[in-house]
Simulated assay, not measured.
Amino acid sequence: MDEICLKAYAKINLTLDVVGRRADGYHLLQSVMQSIALCDLVKIRKGNGLRLAVDHPGVPADVHNTAWRAAELFLKRIGIQGGVEIDIDKQIPVAAGLGGGSADAAAVLVGLDRLYGTGLTPEELGDMAVAVGADVPFCLQGGTQLAEGIGEQLTPLPPVPGGWLVLVKPPVEVSTAQVYQKLKPGTFGTGSSQAFIDALVQGAPWARLAEKLGNVLESVTEELLPEVRLWKGRLLDGGALGTIMSGSGPTVVGIFPTLSEAQHFQGRWQGQAGIILTQPVGQGIGEANGGDR
């Protein structure tokens, strides 16, 4: 095998609690994370040296890209003399709180393991993943997981029910570092995550799970970007069972009970923001030819 093409699935946060802060400044989290069908396509082929091409002008194609760092780390740690050429077809919005860069990096690790037949264990791949970025371990495993620590400590959870997710990405950006810097210690706690997990384990439908959605960072991002509160309101008015901002934003997620209701919302507001319809999936990396990992 000299070439492989993989789907790198995006993620959303169904809950996000901050429980503390490490001495080095990193915040400690509890977050229920979910893979979704929205994905980038990552084509990897054997080559000489390291080359990365991305079809989005706002995404670097060098060491500042997590996919590049993942490839560099893999080749160095395994001691492979050959190289790799990587082409990324970006479908996941950039700087949106959807983990696109982390997903691409996870796909590179999986792809290189397969291309070079190194047969790494999930633990070995996971060690590389956390060295690249905090969300990369989740994107490697995917599905529905409780993420703790800085996001690298994962516990599998029962899958969420089927349903339709509407992602709204306002035409604005927010600095993740700035959001965390403005977060006050008084907001630390585990309220949303544990309540959501309890309901999920009991087999609750979305109508009940939607009541448990919660992201402590929303209060900060909404101050910086009023569009977040605006779109949450529009989603609820449009029939969403519940809404939540993913990560540090600015993407807002609405949970809809039916495809027709999700499509109606998309038709009503498309053009005023990036609006994407998607669904939960049970893995982090998939085969581009239709099979899943």
Rank of each mutant, 00 (worst) to 15 (best):
V168I: 10
E211H: 08
A240V: 04
T155H: 12
Q266F: 02
M245Q: 05
F138I: 07
F138N: 04
R208K: 15
F188T: 00
P93I: 03
I12R: 11
Q91A: 12
P60T: 10
S102K: 05
G291C: 13
F265D: 03
A129D: 09
H56P: 01
S248E: 08
A207L: 15
H56T: 06
G271T: 03
N13G: 04
F74V: 08
K43P: 09
I197H: 06
I285A: 03
I244Q: 13
G238Q: 00
V216R: 09
A37H: 13
H64K: 14
N289E: 12
R22K: 00
P159T: 06
A240F: 04
I4C: 02
V252C: 05
A8N: 01
R208M: 14
F188R: 03
A23K: 10
L225K: 08
P137Q: 07
G100Y: 05
G247W: 12
P185G: 05
E222P: 03
E218Y: 10
G25E: 06
F138H: 03
L109E: 02
K169I: 01
I86K: 02
T66P: 11
G286L: 04
L230N: 01
L73E: 04
G282E: 11
T144D: 00
C5I: 12
P226G: 00
G189R: 04
D62Y: 11
V132P: 03
R69Q: 06
V54P: 09
V42Q: 03
A106W: 01
L259N: 01
H27S: 01
S246D: 06
R293I: 15
L241S: 08
K212T: 10
G25N: 03
S35P: 11
Y116R: 11
V132N: 04
D87Q: 09
T221E: 03
D2T: 15
V160W: 01
A10Y: 10
C39I: 00
V201L: 15
C5K: 13
P161Q: 07
I44Q: 01
I255G: 09
Q30K: 14
L167E: 01
L224T: 05
T243Q: 09
Q178N: 14
K184N: 05
R208I: 14
G82M: 15
V130K: 10
G233D: 08
T251C: 07
A207P: 11
I92R: 03
V172N: 07
G290T: 04
Y180S: 03
C5Y: 09
R268H: 10
I275L: 05
F188C: 05
V54D: 06
